[in-house]
């Protein structure tokens, strides 16, 4: 990868980390609220279905995950397993797509 590409990956990871810090905090607070309030699956779904704000928030959360995780794994794979180069990046691209697909499926399942 080019020097510019490597540097931009770092910028993308930092920016997605900032987003994740916010998203994870909101997500945890929501989970704790839901559990403490004794909400069941049907009650949760009744709040999330058709809720555009909920859809928007979790779409941003998913985007941050899809950007952040593969870049972090890239360093782990090269430093711990010595796996570098195009095959590693292609595998991580496929992993990012899989994350995006699984995440979207979950989001749409709860929204639709």
């Amino acid at each position: 990868m080019s020097l510019r590409g490597e540097a931009l990956l770092w910028v993308a990871q930092r920016a997605s980390a900032a987003l994740l810090a916010l998203c994870v905090a909101v997500h945890l607070a929501t989970m704790i609220y839901a559990v403490h309030s004794g909400l069941g699956a049907a009650e949760i779904l009744s709040r999330t279905r058709g809720n555009a704000a909920w859809l928007g928030f979790y779409s941003v959360f998913l985007l941050a995950v899809v950007v952040h995780v593969p870049i972090g794994l890239r360093a782990v794979l090269s430093e711990w397993l010595g796996w570098r180069g195009g095959t590693r990046d292609a595998a991580l691209g496929a992993f990012a797509l899989a994350l995006a697909w699984l995440g979207l499926r979950a989001i749409l399942g709860v929204f639709g």
Binding site: M1, L3, E6, W10, A75, S78
Partner: peptide, 14 residues
């Protein structure tokens, strides 16, 4: 800047 960029450069620092 080019010398300290890239896989072996500053952004590899944890």
């Amino acid at each position: 800047l080019r010398a300290v960029a890239g896989d072996a450069g500053c952004h590899a620092c944890h």
